[in-house]
Design a protein around this nucleic acid. Structure first.
Lengths: 163, 163
DNA sequence: CAAGATACGTCAATATGGCTGTCCCATCTT
DNA sequence: AAGATGGGACAGCCATATTGACGTATCTTG
């Protein structure tokens, strides 16, 4: 420990914080752009991909769970799910434990389409992982986890528990 | 080196890739939410903040440079800059080397407002950094840098060179 | 100097993805 | 039987992005 008194690290890191803000902005937006072309082929947008992605991740997800994940309104999600249903990418079945629920899953075409989009994400992320090295990947995850508020963390962990 | 042949790491990391996709999604969206309240007080949105942020970062930025950073159209940026100008947060001056250019900078009110928004970002990011530790922060940066296409990297480096 | 390229502004039309508020129905819980 | 919950649907609105076309001032170059 240094003898020199230092101000709280929380208030001494403007440069590091700006760097993080900028890298997050560029990294996130560039990653999402990787799939725009594939989406446009089906006349879909990024909102559709987000739904598709999380349905692929947790088949038989109830609508209420997807609403929590995406943190948008029922109406906004409704339009997206209608589009995906119309294109035969997503289907619903009645919940077996609670018949009010509709459980979402991808159709075979939906599975194939999501996999195609995921390939683009994998190409981008895997090459970033490879360039940075495994220790960096761990750090990448740790920092991002720290950005997720405590009340949302359980949701994210649930997505990843069955990996 | 293992004797067992392994497939290319670029195609064996579905779990790691999905984890990255999800953490980036939640981390990025939660970080951006941290400033919504402050923006709403002025009737502004996230698009305004992005402009404000990069103008704060590089005073006397020409409009063309901001267009490249944000990667949106002139028309979209035009509205944002009009709003910021109307509220007295941003001002322009004619370029001294090239009189066609308009150099953007924040007014004193703009500087103060940007700093207020930045405080919220700093709180979120600094606590994530602190929880993860410095080695993690380095990894976080490295992976995100790997997500930025080569043709955009110079732009990001330019932002950070004067840190 | 004339011609073309560049920086910026602006008009009109359009798309996407969010929002609020309200109301409804089916089903589960108590 | 009453209330809570899961989901759907209506209407209207807002923020942010798009394309294409055109105009003007200024810089660069043959």
């Amino acid at each position: 420990m240094s003898v020199t008194p230092t101000a709280s690290p929380l208030f001494l890191r403007e440069n590091e914080v700006r760097r993080g803000v900028e890298l997050l902005f560029f990294g996130y937006t560039r990653l999402t752009r990787a799939i725009d072309e594939g989406l446009a082929e089906h006349g879909l947008g990024r909102a559709h991909h987000r739904a598709l992605y999380f349905i692929a991740r947790q088949p038989d997800l109830p609508i209420s769970a997807l609403l929590k994940i995406l943190a948008i309104t029922k109406q906004s999600l409704g339009r997206v799910l209608t589009d995906l249903g119309d294109r035969g990418l997503v289907e619903t079945r009645v919940g077996n434990v609670d018949r009010r629920q509709k459980l979402l899953r991808l159709t075979p075409e939906g599975i194939q389409f999501e996999a195609q989009l995921f390939d683009a994400l994998r190409n981008s992320l895997a090459s970033a992982y490879a360039a940075a090295g495994q220790e960096s990947v761990t750090g990448f995850w740790r920092v991002l986890e720290g950005l997720i508020p405590a009340e949302d963390k359980a949701m994210v962990v649930a997505l990843q528990k069955d990996i």
